[in-house]
Nucleic acid binder design. Structure first.
Length: 270
DNA sequence: AGTAGGACCTGGCCGC
DNA sequence: TGCGGCCAGGTCCTAC
């Protein structure tokens, strides 16, 4: 489910549904662990938690509360749903109980997700090495271009590396490279600065359009109310191997790069 | 140091 | 209908 657009759509959705006053009565864990153990810090047990805001960094949601933050990552298969009455669904792991009775439930079959508390966000290992956000000014700075131009890896792997930039996952990497006309196998070293700069704008545009489209729903749904995103219908190459390229009508190719399926047009991307 | 590959999980789909 | 194999929106850790 989650690359930057899906997490951002989720964040806005949750924020809009957050009860007022935004007080959590309790958080319950139904499983011992996701990717990491699920445990409530002793200091918070039995306390009412006032939520100030919900932010996003990289593919993480950040619930800012008095005295710290809860962070949520959806892994590959996680989703949050909001409900008034608890419906028990296999692989429910976390329940946020609001004071007004609303429930936010985290479900994640593969349990690659994360839900953790930190008194101080800077203590989270997940955040220590992250590159810039695609919508920040820093994203277009020369540092990113330099990092790419020094690398021998395939350009697709580079833009999916959170140390270089955050938010780009397997779907949007293929989509953005198509938009920029760059072959995903080409090493960073062999892409000119000019074309890298074109790529950075293509990444921004791709992610922005995906957010507008409500994200991509490939197999699990994204939205808190259960509706699917719509952007999967606008994918130009991802998941379209063997179909015709929308620009030149040649066949979309598919091959693995570092174990991840990659889609591109042989004719339009060089 | 930079890079590739394995590990973590469950479920759905395809072919035999 | 059953079973093996392969695939899936991510990221850390390990070994070359």
């Amino acid at each position: 489910m989650p690359e930057l657009p899906e997490v951002e759509v989720l964040r806005r959705d949750l924020l809009a549904r957050m009860p007022k006053p935004s007080r959590i009565r309790a958080i319950r864990f139904l499983s011992p662990k996701l990717r990491t153990p699920l445990k409530m810090p002793k200091a918070l047990v039995g306390k009412t938690l006032l939520v100030r805001d919900i932010e996003r960094r990289s593919k993480f949601l950040i619930f800012n509360i008095e005295g710290g933050v809860f962070i949520s990552h959806l892994g590959m298969s996680g989703y949050w749903r909001a409900e008034k009455v608890r419906s028990e669904i296999k692989h429910d792991h976390v329940i946020i109980e609001w004071e007004n009775g609303d429930l936010w439930v985290y479900n994640d079959p593969r349990r690659f997700g994360v839900f953790e508390f930190y008194p101080d966000l800077s203590k989270a290992k997940w955040f220590s090495h992250l590159g810039p956000e695609p919508f920040s000014d820093e994203f277009l700075a020369s540092q990113v271009v330099d990092k790419i131009r020094r690398s021998e890896r395939a350009i697709k792997s580079i833009i999916m590396d959170a140390k270089v930039m955050v938010g780009v996952g397997n779907i949007y990497a293929s989509e953005a490279l198509f938009k920029a006309g760059i072959n995903p196998f080409k090493t960073g070293k062999r892409v000119s600065s000019e074309r890298i700069s074109r790529l950075l704008f293509a990444i921004r545009e791709t992610l922005a359009k995906a957010i507008k489209g409500g994200g991509s729903s490939i197999r699990d749904y994204v939205h808190v109310g259960g509706e699917k995103g719509q952007f999967q219908n606008e994918h130009l190459v991802y998941g379209r191997s063997g179909e015709m390229c929308t620009l030149c009508s040649s066949k979309i190719q598919s091959k693995k790069i570092q174990g991840r399926s990659t889609f591109w047009c042989r004719n339009c991307q060089s």
